[in-house]
Amino acid sequence: MTAIAVDVAAERLRWESAYRTAYPRVYRGLLALGARSDEAEDALQDAFVKGLERGIDRPVTSVDGWIFVVASRAWRGRRIRERIFLPWTLLRERETPTADATRDVLAALRRLSLRQRQVIVARYIVGLAQEETAELLGIARGTVSATTTQAIAALRRLMEVTE
């Protein structure tokens, strides 16, 4: 095996290992954001391939965070395309809640704004620090803090109502 081939294999293994470590948290985070399981799987696979193509040696704050942001972007892109191109009746069928809706806290989470969901998922499911969340989502640290507080308060209110 040539030196280049060894480097390529090592790089791939390193990326795959990081990806597999991050997968459970990010997958569940995408479901919590509102993705269907097939959408979350596809989005994560997109992120894996993108990471392979672009290399992970670019300066990134957190591999988990990078995968989360890239995958959630891929999911939202697909969802937007579906909203534009799928007949409304089909879309309604596809969005029918499944067993997830029975979990109050996740049902409540899905009633928050997208930004609030992103911040909550990034902070508490993916496990990013406030600074990482701010950098990856392209918002100020203060905004992360304020959004977190508002979102948790809203979640608590929603859960009290549904209890």
Binding site: L31, A32, E41, L106, I120, Y124
Partner: peptide
């Protein structure tokens, strides 16, 4: 509560992760 709920979400088989 959020963490417990998400921890219960089943993962796809590892063969489908990549």
């Amino acid at each position: 509560a959020l963490r417990q709920a998400t921890d219960q979400l089943p993962l796809p088989p590892e063969s489908r992760w990549i």
